[in-house]
Design a protein around this nucleic acid. Structure first.
Lengths: 209, 209
DNA sequence: CACATAGGTGAACACTTGTACACATCACGA
DNA sequence: TCGTGATGTGTACAAGTGTTCACCTATGTG
């Protein structure tokens, strides 16, 4: 009936995922989204949803996959841009904040998913964080910045770093997107948190023996 | 019509709050709860809800208040039970884990609320965490355990501690309630996180000047 | 005792929800 | 060329939703 223009494959699928993200970005919680709501936002008929996803949770899982890509992009940029070791933390936090701002909805979704209602989404996000932490550990090892730490202690440190940053996400996402002052505050605070963690790591074995 | 037994005042109100908590404890996300669902679980007619709360978010706000009481009880117990300073961290984490297990639904609600959909609930929980951190700072000051730190740096430390513990909540709540091994793992890991933070705090000024 | 008030109840409303079914349209391989 | 499968659409329905209304009953204060 309504004219059906030729569609690039996967287009509606993208539209649906973006619609879910958009709603999350608008302040809704992912766990409270419904199929009809998402399709309405996407400008698509409800039935189409089932062509691509079995349920809202399923869509969530696929969002986690995309989130993985976003995180990898961020990591790549961080690796390319960290020039001097002494500004390493500051610059990394800066890159993180910039990405979080540029992909606000995505990171909002991530923060929500950590205590979300779908066990699978939760585990997916957790697993992305583990991956991130292990990559960080590799980098630190390669740069020989933590030679005095055992592998286990280095992992511990990186896990703590990732957690701290992840928690900062909730700070960052709860201030207005363009309140530069507040955003700066979060950045400074996060930087100091990480500095403290690294000071702890630097003195770890000598103090905990 | 249906016989109306004499009710202790506020009874239904409690029933409603407990019902919401029970649903959260069962794996539901607070943001996805509806009025009818809550009243059904409470064994009460939907209309009764409005006698006590204006909306689900309102109920959430009142839950945050109760959460405050739970946290205070926990703090009191921790203060009473910490015997030797050298086991301070270990014992505190133990008490925290015990309380989190005993009030699983409450802490689940807290973890969800941090990235929740109601701005007010979010701010309430955040504020409880700030209070907790400032009390912790007072204690450390009183015990003269952080004399070398400025007030601002002490606050920073305590904030980081509270965040770290709060994040552990998501670990703790995602493992089965009675999987003692996993729970023990979370406890050990959290303890080491905090030890690392405190090592960092101990060497803070000397390393960051 | 009378009465105001708080709290509990059932029926009804206008919507929204998830899901199923039948059908239309396109791209593409046999 | 003709299927055939993937993707889109419209309609339908039963069930669940938030909220309002009028009404009932227990309780405590004047």
């Amino acid at each position: 009936m309504a004219e059906q223009q030729r569609r690039r494959p996967g287009e509606t699928r993208e539209k649906l995922m973006n619609a879910a993200l958009a709603l999350v970005g608008k302040g809704r919680h992912f766990a409270s989204l419904g199929i009809r709501e998402i399709t309405r936002q996407a400008g698509v008929v409800p039935t189409s949803f089932y062509r691509h996803f079995r349920s809202v949770d399923d869509l969530g899982l696929q969002l986690v996959d995309e989130l993985g890509l976003v995180l990898r992009r961020m990591m790549r940029e961080a690796r390319a841009n960290v020039l001097q070791a002494d500004k390493l933390i500051e610059e990394s936090v800066g890159i993180f904040v910039a990405h979080a701002q540029a992909n606000r909805s995505f990171f909002l979704f991530m923060a929500q998913g950590l205590a979300g209602e779908s066990r699978a989404v939760q585990e997916g996000i957790r697993s992305e964080m583990r991956f991130f932490a292990s990559e960080l550990a590799n980098d630190l090892r390669r740069l020989r910045l933590a030679d005095h730490l055992s592998d286990a202690d280095l992992d511990l440190t990186c896990d703590l770093v990732v957690r701290t940053v992840a928690f900062s996400l909730t700070d960052l996402l709860s201030v207005s997107e363009d309140d530069d002052y507040q955003v700066g505050q979060v950045r400074k605070r996060t930087t100091r948190f990480l500095q403290m963690v690294f000071v702890g790591a630097a003195h770890w074995n000598s103090s905990s023996a």
